[in-house]
Design a protein around this nucleic acid. Sequence first.
DNA 1: TTTCAAACAGGAATCATTACGATTCACTTG
DNA 2: CAAGTGAATCGTAATGATTCCTGTTTGAAA
Lengths: 138, 138
Amino acid sequence: MTLDEAWRILQEHQFKRTKNRVTILQYFSKNDRYMTALAVKNAMEKDNPGISFDTIYRNLTTFAELGILEETDLNGERRFRMQCDPGVHHHHFICTACGKTRSIAHCPMEMITVNLPDYEVEGHKFEIYGKCPNCIMN
Amino acid sequence: MTLDEAWRILQEHQFKRTKNRVTILQYFSKNDRYMTALAVKNAMEKDNPGISFDTIYRNLTTFAELGILEETDLNGERRFRMQCDPGVHHHHFICTACGKTRSIAHCPMEMITVNLPDYEVEGHKFEIYGKCPNCIMN
DNA sequence: TTTCAAACAGGAATCATTACGATTCACTTG
DNA sequence: CAAGTGAATCGTAATGATTCCTGTTTGAAA
């Protein structure tokens, strides 16, 4: 997703264009991988010293709810990345070394749900973990 | 997995048969669903008041490493259940209301990995979330 | 410009989990 | 079966991630 698309969504929902949101979104648009709130905070403190965790988490949660960011849990930590393919359902390979991802076009759900009558499916998670080509050769 | 199988594995690795381990394993063998460490602790305090979280977590981690328990992260919390099918790779539907699970025979990995040359796959997670028939009708 | 809810900073509080030092216990060996 | 030994435990403190709270600042609408 581009910055313009993100801002259009935020405006649509009447969120203000604050300095912190500008910085956070810029950071995500430049870093194409899953990152923790702490990583975001550390990176932001150069341009925006004194930013609080409250602000980071509040905005990350908002962005994820609006579909601007994608969210996942890795080892009990929330991680976020820029939504890579808005509106299109997809899954990820996630590099456990650098956090970079690779989209996986195929979703395994269709052939599975047929075996679950009487169940009410609310969602699913399909993630592949490992090392990306770049991290394999250190 | 039966209690006997679990104890055989523990003996094989020279773990002692302590009162706490007896109680924990009994609890899991009677509750066929994913549970948090807190739930285990609460349930144990009837028979075993004063048990510490250290003991709970240490044993849960040990059991998971030995393949006696299965572990997953749900909303940033670690949850455990008795290994349902030792040695056989499988996935789960997980009821978000009661934690009960249903095995899913089919694993989607084979057809996916072929699209990931140059990547080093270490593992994957495939889980379906929703309500089980029992919880649908409250 | 004024206005005011939204957004923020700073720090305290909470929740899950782990670490630690002192004590107890399960099992081996004599 | 009593003693010895390292594993296991307890109670509690520490940690790390996340959320809550209160007073202050700020974006943008009028």
